[in-house]
């Protein structure tokens, strides 16, 4: 569904992505794990058209992906960004309306709105509230709901667990699985490697702009190097229990 060939991104003199290639199949959850500054957000933002790349190609559904952000959204890719970037000055409802900005199918929009309220009942309750007053977890739910409002086929999730309490992280990951079950393909970028691997079909490890490892998520989670670098020994014991 999404195929990236040899993508390179420079920020001034800094070479942030050095020839990254990856593949996302329809219906999958694909995770990209890596530490801070590995280039995960750069990768996601290149797909979304926010970061310009000079080398490499991105194909989506067999065609070359546009480099203009609004055309990318129109073609069915949406990003739920790191730090959520909900519109704090707008109400919850207006935020969701912004999600469907490019759509004009009123019936479809209403249907998706109801689906999102089923998925996140708290958003229905807070419909008229200004989004800036929501708690962190609610803001993450709003950001995901807003993303779904564009009726995307592919959702790019950038650090959905960032800054959330452990219990909330579980809820958010359950919802990611639920969204995947709705037929949406998911590309997930996470620092929380254990969580990201445990729900993914396939995963890539990104280190300093290079993909250093890839494989089925259930195999990577058992890989010694990954255990050491990203999961920590204690976590591993916990998994085997």
């Amino acid at each position: 569904m999404l195929k990236i060939n040899n993508l390179s991104v420079f920020y001034g003199g800094i070479h942030a992505l050095k020839g990254v290639s990856l593949n996302v199949e329809q219906g999958q959850i694909v995770s990209i794990i890596g530490s801070n500054g590995a280039g995960k957000s750069t990768l996601i933002n290149s797909i979304s058209g926010i970061v310009k790349y000079k080398e490499g190609e991105i194909f989506y559904k067999g065609e070359k992906l546009s480099k203009q952000a609004h055309k990318i959204v129109k073609s069915g890719i949406c990003q739920v960004p790191e730090g959520r970037i909900i519109f704090a000055n707008l109400t919850v409802m207006e935020n969701l309306r912004m999600g469907s900005f490019l759509r004009s199918d009123t019936n479809g929009i209403d249907k998706d709105l109801n689906r999102i309220f089923d998925l996140f009942p708290i958003l229905k309750e807070r419909e008229k509230q200004v989004a800036g007053t929501l708690s962190g977890g609610e803001q993450q739910m709003l950001a995901m709901g807003r993303g779904l409002m564009s009726n995307p086929d592919l959702i790019l999730l950038d650090e959905p667990s960032l800054g959330l309490a452990p219990l909330l992280i579980n809820t958010i990951f359950d919802i990611i699985i639920e969204i995947n079950n709705m037929g949406k393909t998911i590309l997930l970028v996470e620092q929380n490697a254990f969580k990201a691997l445990s729900i993914a079909d396939y995963a890539y490890v990104l280190e300093q702009g290079i993909i250093t490892m890839e494989g089925n998520a259930n195999e990577l989670i058992k890989n010694e190097k990954i255990k050491e670098a990203y999961l920590g020994k204690k976590n591993v014991d916990f998994i085997s229990v």
Binding site: S48, I86, F87, E94, M98
Partner: peptide, 23 residues
């Protein structure tokens, strides 16, 4: 109006509204 909504959203975050497909 929808245009007005996109103006208000963009005034809060250009990146945010770009990601929603706002030109």
């Amino acid at each position: 109006t929808k245009i007005g909504l996109s103006i208000r959203a963009t005034s809060y975050s250009i990146k945010g509204s770009t990601l929603m497909g706002v030109n």
